[in-house]
Amino acid sequence: MVETILAATDIGKRFGGFVALEGIDFAVRRGERVGVLGPNGSGKSTLVNCLTGVLRNETGEIVFDGQRIDGLATHQRIRRGISRTFQIPRPFASMTVRENVEIALLYAGRLATTGPGVAGAGDAAAILDLVGLGAKADESSGQLTQVDLRKLELARAMATRPRLLIADEAMAGLSRAEVDEILALLLRLNAEGISIVMIEHIMYAVMKFSQRLCVLVAGRKIADGDPDAVVKDPEVERAYLGD
């Protein structure tokens, strides 16, 4: 078994003349919790999009579970076990909460037969219970509150049976209590063996969650390591807190 579940090396992406990512090396070990920090426009979302195939990286290669995946379409990567949530929730608004999860189960969940998933959760109900949406399974997903929409994002991601989950600002705009709720949920998923990458602005959440922290600034990785050490790095302080 490979110790590293995701290894992206020398990832580069340009939009016209604008360099969004350059020479990014990014690796995640099995079962690890990694935080990614960076100011707006630093390339965090572009990195998520390149890893999941929503965008194609122009340089570098991405290896997931020992296999190159950078030529694959997004749905193929999802089926191999990389899952993601969206910064701004994107529910299937004409469907109920349960149906939202069922789509992912139908198209990705049943294909992932190996790897840790939700223990014994063969159906949508179990996944919804896990994220705390069990009581709202039959409600229209278009009418959920912000925090429930974030939970639905996580539920749908979990339904694809991921081995690596990328949570893209899953807590932005939530109250402290709601942040704690999502945080506890992510820790619980991690405890079941899922590697988690958390892209986040909320320093408190990142510090509490991460075993390792990466910092992106202007499309480059300027720090990677122990969270407490990284935040004390003078370069990070300068980039993040301003001169």
Partner: peptide
Amino acid sequence: SRLGRGLAAIRDDELAAECAGVPTL
């Protein structure tokens, strides 16, 4: 069918469908 539910997901949000494992194209 499964196909129809996949199509409905595409109609609602194509990118989210792709990220739920739906082969949209």
